[in-house]
Each structure stands twice: as C-alpha cells, then as structure tokens.
Design a protein around this nucleic acid. Sequence first.
DNA 1: TTCCAGGAATCTT
DNA 2: AAGATTCATGGA
Length: 280
Amino acid sequence: MQTFSLKNIPFQLDRTVSCGQAFRWRQNEGFWYAPIADRVWKIRQEGDILWYEGPTEDELVRYFGLDVPLDRILNDIDTDPLIHAAIEQCRGLRIIRQDPWECLVSYICATCANIPGIMLRIENLSMKYGRNLELDGQVFHTFPDAEILCKEDICAVRACKVGYRDAYICKAAEMAANDPHWAEEIQKLPYHQAKEKLMTLPGVGPKVADCVLLFAFEKYEAFPVDVWIERILRTKYLGGTRKLSYKEAGEFARNHFGQYAGYAQEYLFGIREEISSKGE
DNA sequence: TTCCAGGAATCTT
DNA sequence: AAGATTCATGGA
C-alpha cells in the first residue's frame, strides 16, 4: 500500500467518487475500489493522506486531477450565494479525468436513467464483455474495448438491459474501433468544435456531449444541463417558470460562472437534493 | 402502481 | 424554431 500526501491539496475522495460523475466505484470495508483500465484501484483517505494501491503516483494524480489548482478555480466560480454555499459544502470535490471511451458509453447509457440504473448497465456490459480482475477476494470487470463491442450483435448488447441505447452503443463502438485516434482528435479541438464532432454520433446530444467533454476531455466550459440543473437555474437563478432551452442554460452558466462553469455545474449537482427539497 | 431519472431522435405544429 | 411523442429499464 502506498501513500500520497495531500498537504495544501484540497481533496475529498468520498465526494469525488460518489457524486455521480464516474460509475464504477464501490465502497467496501473502508476502501473504495474500482476497475480502472486494466487494474483494480483501491484507495482510502485519512485526513490529508491517501492510502492506495493499483495506480502509479502519476496515474493517481492525473485521474483525480490533483494537479489542477482547485482553490483558484473555486474562487473563480464563486460568484453568488448559492454556488458559495455549494463550495463550502463540497470543497475538495474534483472532476475526474476518465477514459474517453468508457465515459462516452457511460453517458450514452445515462439518458433517462438515474445513477443506480446507469451503474447497473455499465456493470452488465462489463460483466458480459470485459475481462475479470480480482482484488481482496472481490471480482471486478474491465470495461469492454470498442474492438470487442463493435463485433457484437445489437440484440446481444441489448441483453445487457441497455434498452433503446443498444444501437447507439454499437455505432459508437464502430466509430471508435475504426478510428483509434478519435479521442486525441477531440482533445485537440476547442470546446464548441469538439462538441459538434461528438454530436455526430447517434445517441449523443448536447447533454451527453457536455458530460464527456467535462469528465474525459478537460473542457471545463462544458456545462451539462440535466433535469436537476435546469430546475436549479430556472428557480434559483432566473426566477422564471418557463423551461430553459439547453442552449440558454449553458450560455447563462458560462456567462455567469466563467471559463470553469463545468466545475460550478458539478458543485451545484453535488447539492441538488438539498436545494430541491427545501422547496421552491 | 405510478412516477421519475445526468436525453435524443423523430415527428407535429 | 418550438412542442409533443416515443424509446426501455430500474429505482423510489
């Protein structure tokens, strides 16, 4: 087991892995476990110490974005009382740098589903098509490569209970398998062009594209607007009754929160239940 | 049972 | 350019 010192590095592991941005982390006896790429990662936080095994230190820092100047970003987006409260409550929540392929399929599976439902679908796909890994007597499954999924029949994929998303997943697999450099190309593009390119895939609309850009491509202008975020913007920021269009919501947010609007989105998402249950 | 969920595609106005 | 409908599934 290795250690990493978080001195002067704000980080909350629990919040970061359980806030709904990544779908494969599970807690067991004080540790968080997840299959990341080809290995199982095991990690826990005690104050400003991380205990971990699985990744190298560089991989750990990169995945959790520990090299990102979080305090500076939070200071930058801290433009009103509500986001201020979210920052107070969630400080240390970081945006994870996920694998682009797994992230893409995950958010294709995320449409019209709650977080437990998304996790189930990802797990089903991985159990059926991934490879087995084991740690501490627990079995994990790698996320299936595009090269594997693109050879699958739509019906076989559908058996993973992905519903109408079956064809979308197969199409995405075909794209990724035929164009191994797709992710590098997206990475190079500025936000709006990267988004347009992702949206050429069936099953990838503005919301899914924004999630993938934010959680896998470090495009922090991306501001995913789901039903929760739309409700918060409408009732707490714009005081309106009319439902906001996706474009309106995103433009307002980027204008209001600035270049790190994506972080603001994740912090507001982090307190979505509290906001919604305390009445309009 | 009913309603809802990190929506998108397709059809109607 | 906006609305309404449909899609499939599981959680609450």
